[in-house]
Design a protein around this nucleic acid. Sequence first.
DNA 1: CTTTCATATGAATATCCGTTCATATTATAT
DNA 2: ATATAATATGAACGGATATTCATATGAAAG
Lengths: 114, 114
Amino acid sequence: MEHSQHSASLARAQSALSREEKLFELADLFRLFADSTRIRILYALSGGELCVGALSTLLSLEQSTVSHQLKVLRESRLVTYRREGKTNLYSLSDEHVSSILDAGFTHLLEEEEH
Amino acid sequence: MEHSQHSASLARAQSALSREEKLFELADLFRLFADSTRIRILYALSGGELCVGALSTLLSLEQSTVSHQLKVLRESRLVTYRREGKTNLYSLSDEHVSSILDAGFTHLLEEEEH
DNA sequence: CTTTCATATGAATATCCGTTCATATTATAT
DNA sequence: ATATAATATGAACGGATATTCATATGAAAG
């Protein structure tokens, strides 16, 4: 298994391995965006806070489905919520969520030009 | 109701709708980054082109595993390759891949500050 | 042409995880 | 206190998919 190619590219790749550990966390992060239900929820919330019922109606999803996925997003700190009477108003935790969505959109748009 | 305002609202609604439709494609895109094997491959390739065997050694993965995931990345056009003798040299298709990775890294780094 | 190295592919297994159904919790109103 | 509305949670089922093993393809050397 000799790779005569070595040298520059492999050396760079090996220095990249110093951040190898973070790549597993990164995969975990992207996994949150890898489901259409969650990404639709996140995008809906990018326009402002919404309650569970509104998300459910807006996205034509069962309340239980929305609630389960909100729990996932909550525990990974991508969304937060505040109580208001009987309803819970959810919103994005920070602007990084939107910037990750935007990076993906940019890729899709440029893909279409081919 | 004023015309210009109406068409402006309609335009926003339509663009919002088309974005909503793209969210399913966006989930598909992020799913490619949601696996540690694939993301490690992509990050390794961000340093320059590498052959299958080098990736396999570098990432301590079976050749078959690397090859299968490269096929996924190839078919989704995130990577390309060129033949050189018996080896296939893989590289990232474009710089958007790196920018998506960077957006994720940025989020992780700011997360750590808490 | 056959051997060897590099890579690709197919099939099978195992694990993960999103949805659903049923039920529990929490808050308000009567 | 009970009813009702909003949301959360638990368990189970089903579908997707990453890995492995075995084998096939392809390219170059002897």
